[in-house]
Design a protein around this nucleic acid. Structure first.
Length: 483
RNA sequence: GCCCCCAUCGUCUAGCGGUUAGGACGCUGCCCUUUCAAGGCAGAGAUCAGGGGUUCGAAUCCCCUUGGGGGCGCCA
């Protein structure tokens, strides 16, 4: 069993592409098959090497290791290479099959210019006919061809579609699908540049690479009959086809930039864990029969199945994604939490050496409530630098009655502490409250705001211990001036 | 315009002829609690898009309508 993910490197790996890659990967792992990565860079204008790099990186980050294709070090692995279409083109692979089909009369050279094609499309539109290529160049005489060439006309190679009958297949997800041949266009196999067009390159490579299951987005459903006709013309066996439902934005339209982040890299930057993305994406269009939500390491690889795939499109829900990220963050060990947080802390410019407390301990303070790693530095920054006093918190909590008295009293109590640790600080704080007839909360809240600048934060007395005695006293003084 | 695909709580979904239509996110309330979260418990939320059939019986099978999505490139 062999599957492939075949992105075109015209940008970053987006959510839809990642989901397709993931399903291919999971299906390969589940069936002990081979997962191949092929680069479809036949769009000469838009393909870039940076995109290739970016796609590799996103896939590696997601943990979608491929068995064949161009590997991390740039070398190719696998016996069915090369795995980059532009390289395959330079070896004449596609031309060879195109020539064969022309010789058999299954394909032909077409001399129509883009302008002429535009013209016929417009006409078809007006006459309310299907917008398909009508086969103007299908039966040119040798003389006509020579004339075109003498005039310097460039040509493409088109596939001659059957005029009658239907082309259909049994899709692993959509069951039986069929199209009427006469409504399908003689599609381009080779462009004027000699480069193969998608439908042709895809079929040739899938066959040569012995792909057994083509799992792709269902925006390719209408390409499938064209490709099947090609397989037939070349007398090649068909692979299984499985067309995955689309992923839509919250407004039900195709996921795009205006819905926010669309690429895997952007989610990484926001502080989503790779396991979160993998798990969430898996649930977009697939489910187990018991609707399991969270999967342990390796469990998806074990449970994934084409049978659980959904036919209907799924709307991408950032809120649920964020919830799931919180779940995965809580599952992290303290050490892993620190490791995943580190890039975000560095990025924020915080200086961990500004505190005597190990960063590990400070980060652990926020782990269980953290949803996005990118939010973490903001939550812990007051451990490393002067607090920024939240105006609302100052107004509501610091300017409450008695607060001046309370903070002065607390200052005295803290100054007298020999051991500035969580337990003694708590004991001292509670003792002060009790001795002066304050309710616990009446003291705790202003102290929190005075020391951190905000109304919410980590468990109070641990927080105070971590801020340290000297700094705490300093901040109490500062807060007193704000009242 | 033509072709194709799809249709269960707001969202992701289970269901595959007989269920009180189940779970998850979100939402509401309560508990826990120094705050914010997290966690625990409870709850609201779906006449299964609508209409016809088939059947003793339909969310499940068939047809039509409506709605949504995709495709109709020398892009993939």
């Amino acid at each position: 069993m062999r599957v492939r993910f075949a992105p075109s490197p015209t940008g970053h790996l987006h959510i839809g592409g990642a989901r397709t890659a993931l399903f291919n990967y999971l299906y390969a792992r589940k069936s002990s098959g081979t997962f191949i990565l092929r680069i479809e860079d036949t769009d000469e204008d838009r393909s870039t090497q940076e995109s290739v790099k970016s796609i590799y990186e996103s896939m590696r980050w997601l943990g979608l290791a491929w068995d064949e294709g161009v590997m991390a070090d740039g070398t190719e692995k696998g016996a069915h290479g090369p795995y980059v279409q532009s390289v395959r083109e330079s070896q004449g692979i596609y031309r060879k099959y195109a020539d064969g089909l022309i010789a058999e009369g299954r394909a032909y050279r077409c001399y129509c210019t883009p302008e002429e094609l535009d013209e016929t499309r417009k006409k078809a539109q007006l006459e309310k006919r299907p917008l398909i290529y009508g086969g103007r160049c299908r039966n040119l005489t040798e003389e006509q061809k020579k004339e075109f060439e003498a005039r310097g006309r460039k040509s493409v190679v088109r596939f001659r579609m059957p005029d009658t009958g239907f082309t259909g297949w049994h899709d692993s997800i959509h069951k039986d699908v069929k199209f009427e041949n006469k409504l399908l266009s003689d599609f381009v196999m080779l462009k004027t540049s000699g480069y193969p067009a998608y439908n042709f390159a895809c079929v040739v490579d899938d066959h040569l690479m012995e792909i057994s299951h083509v799992i792709r987005g269902d925006d390719h459903i209408s390409n499938t009959p064209l490709q099947i006709c090609l397989y037939n013309a070349l007398s090649w066996a068909l692979p299984e086809f499985a067309h995955l439902s689309m992923i839509l934005g919250p407004d039900g339209t195709r996921l795009s930039k205006r819905h926010g982040a669309t690429s895997v890299g952007e989610y990484r930057k926001q502080g989503y864990l790779p396991e979160t993305m993998k798990n969430y994406l898996a649930l977009l269009g697939w489910s187990t029969t018991d609707s399991q939500q969270i999967f342990k390491k390796g469990e998806l690889e074990e449970k994934f199945d084409l049978k659980g795939c959904q036919k209907s499109p799924a709307i991408f829900d950032p809120v649920k994604l964020a919830w799931m990220n919180g779940e995965y963050i809580r599952l992290l060990s303290r050490e892993d939490m620190l490791a995943f947080s580190m890039p975000f802390i560095k990025e924020s410019g915080l200086d961990p050496s500004a505190s005597k407390i190990p960063l590990l301990d400070i980060v652990a303070l926020e782990q269980e409530k953290c949803k996005l790693l990118a939010e973490l530095p903001g939550k812990i920054e007051f451990f490393f630098k002067d607090p920024v006093y939240n105006p609302e918190a100052v107004e509501k909590t610091l300017k409450a009655p008695e607060v001046t008295k309370i903070l002065n009293g607390i200052k005295e109590a803290y100054a007298a502490l020999a051991e500035f640790k969580e337990a003694p600080v708590e004991a001292a704080t509670r003792a002060f409250a009790k001795a002066n007839g304050y309710k616990a909360g009446q003291v705790f809240h202003p102290v929190r705001v005075a020391l951190s600048g905000r109304a919410e934060g980590p468990t109070l007395f641990r927080m105070i211990e971590y801020i340290g005695k000297e700094e705490s006293l300093k901040r109490l003084d500062k807060a007193l001036t704000l009242i």
